[in-house]
Simulated scan of single mutants.
Amino acid sequence: MDGDEGELVGVPGELADEVELVDALLKPLADRPVDMTDPDWTVRLGEGPHPLDEAGVREEAETALRRLLVLYERGDEQTRSAVREPLNRCGSFRRATHVPGLCEEACAARIDIRPLLLEVAELSSAEAKYGMGSVQEILRRAAGRDPAGLW
């Protein structure tokens, strides 16, 4: 992070702009039609390059995500709320930078991710927005699974 680390009150404008730019570049890929009448539609959906690679924005997206995570980890509730705003607005960015694969890799390497899931749950919102429970509840449930993980 290149700012004053004592002043964590929101998302710097250039970081929010970067997330929105990456989101705009990913959106046409995310909005492509899917022929769900094709019996192999799920296989076809997984074929081809990852959207971050197809759009040529992997480095920018991963850098922006790392910066957001640092703000989220170090910030107070006001800062964490501000970090969630661009993620709520930028659905294509949010979906393309998902982390369930990291959980699977950690489990395959026999790394116990339960403490990490519980630590992130403590920082996460308790507000249930989409009918699946809050992020806090989802992470606590994931920590209770055997093996631990989001899915």
Results as ranks from 00 to 15, higher is better:
C107D: 10
E119T: 12
D31S: 14
M132E: 05
D112S: 07
V34L: 15
L8R: 15
E127R: 09
E47F: 00
T79D: 03
V22M: 05
G10W: 03
V22T: 09
G133E: 00
E47H: 05
L8N: 15
V99H: 02
L29A: 12
E122L: 13
E105D: 11
F93Q: 07
A126L: 03
F93C: 05
L52P: 01
D112M: 02
R110H: 10
A96D: 04
E62K: 06
D4Y: 12
A148Y: 01
A121Y: 04
L25A: 13
L25R: 15
E77H: 09
E18L: 14
S92L: 07
A64P: 03
L71Y: 08
D35W: 02
A96P: 03
E7K: 15
R67E: 14
G144T: 00
E119Y: 12
A109N: 04
R32S: 11
R74L: 15
D2S: 14
R74K: 15
A64G: 07
D35M: 04
L69C: 12
E104D: 11
E60F: 00
T37L: 10
R44S: 11
L25F: 06
E59G: 08
A55M: 05
R67A: 14
S125T: 15
G133F: 00
Q78H: 12
M132L: 12
L116Q: 06
G144H: 01
F93D: 05
A64Y: 02
P147W: 03
V120P: 01
V99N: 01
L102I: 11
E7A: 15
D112T: 05
P28C: 12
R44M: 02
A96S: 11
A24N: 07
A82N: 07
P86Q: 07
G133K: 00
C103P: 00
A16C: 07
V83N: 09
C103Q: 03
A55T: 06
R84H: 06
T97V: 13
A64N: 06
S124W: 02
L102A: 09
E20Q: 12
P100R: 13
Y72L: 07
E62V: 13
N88I: 02
P51H: 06
K129T: 13
L65W: 08
F93M: 09
R95P: 00
A126Y: 00
Q78F: 05
E7S: 13
F93A: 06
T42C: 01
S92G: 10
V135R: 02
R44V: 06
A64L: 05
V43G: 02
M1H: 14
